[in-house]
Design a protein around this nucleic acid. Structure first.
Lengths: 145, 145
DNA sequence: CATCAAATCGTAATCATTACTGTTAATAAG
DNA sequence: CTTATTAACAGTAATGATTACGATTTGATG
């Protein structure tokens, strides 16, 4: 079920987007960090190191396009945005637990929406956001020691 | 239980912060918009209109201080930050449903954390974020018509 | 290979937020 | 009430992420 760079490139093709070496490198970079949100500024720094003189605009535009295709997930929380390779393009609805130490993402099953919708009679619920953070089991064990 | 500007000012006093006319005006502005998140840029615009030549820094600094005292709630979602007068300084744990049309905030009872903690054995959950948005009952009825 | 639209570059703009420094004014003590 | 102290403020300018734009390059297609 976990997708690879080639899977992502195939999606680009299917949508008549051009396969450039920059895009391939970006996807490769993101794909190498599965289950981790990476700060967009770090993606930017890496790309501009890899392709000296690469434009900021290109990087941000590509992230936006990748997101529209479901290849990555973006999160705009506070200061700067973060982005994560979407290992499962199927776009299943899910929520995340994010470890503040190692950055690992755990997908949660079940959605809290079910428990709340009956508190809002008449309202039309269009979306929601749910996220948990802390220390994953590994880091919790390590740090406590 | 709903707090007023004077209650907020009292908190400033208790914490040995000075009561300036700027701060009073800010709190008054925010207090007049209960259950609504206001964009910080709008607070900024209003204050600089009220006190021509007022400094951006003062406004942002005050919001941060108000937040530390629990007088307001801040939300940094995407583009610009939003802020809301905290009618209940008691800092009870709760979540929000936010109407995208009128901006009304409904506080939700019950916290989804309970339903998820057992999915993360060993992890140390330090925080979470939950939010729902859409149309409140009033707006849903009006817009549908 | 030739074509053409899509991607990219490179520069500069935008815009929210913050640093910094000298000045003002709220508070508490006399 | 007067004064001393120091937080709060004004004003200017910086920062830093993100985007606009015009010129150039390059991937896809035949």
């Amino acid at each position: 079920m976990t997708k690879t760079v080639d899977d992502a490139v195939a999606v680009l093709q299917q949508n008549h987007l051009k396969i450039t070496k920059q895009r391939r490198t970006m996807l490769s970079f993101l794909c190498a960090r599965p289950d981790h949100y990476t700060e967009v500024t770090q993606v930017d720094a890496y790309m501009r190191d890899f392709y000296p003189g690469m434009s900021h605009a290109t990087i941000y535009r590509n992230i936006k396009e990748f997101e529209e295709l479901g290849l990555v997930e973006q999160q705009v929380e506070g200061e700067q945005a973060r982005v994560k390779f979407q290992c499962d393009f199927a776009n299943m609805h899910h929520h995340h637990f994010i470890c503040r130490n190692c950055g690992q993402v755990t997908e949660l099953k079940m959605c809290p929406l079910d428990y709340f919708s009956d508190q809002l009679p008449g309202a039309k619920i269009e979306g929601h956001r749910f996220e948990m953070y802390g220390l994953c089991a590994n880091c919790a064990a390590t740090i406590e020691a």
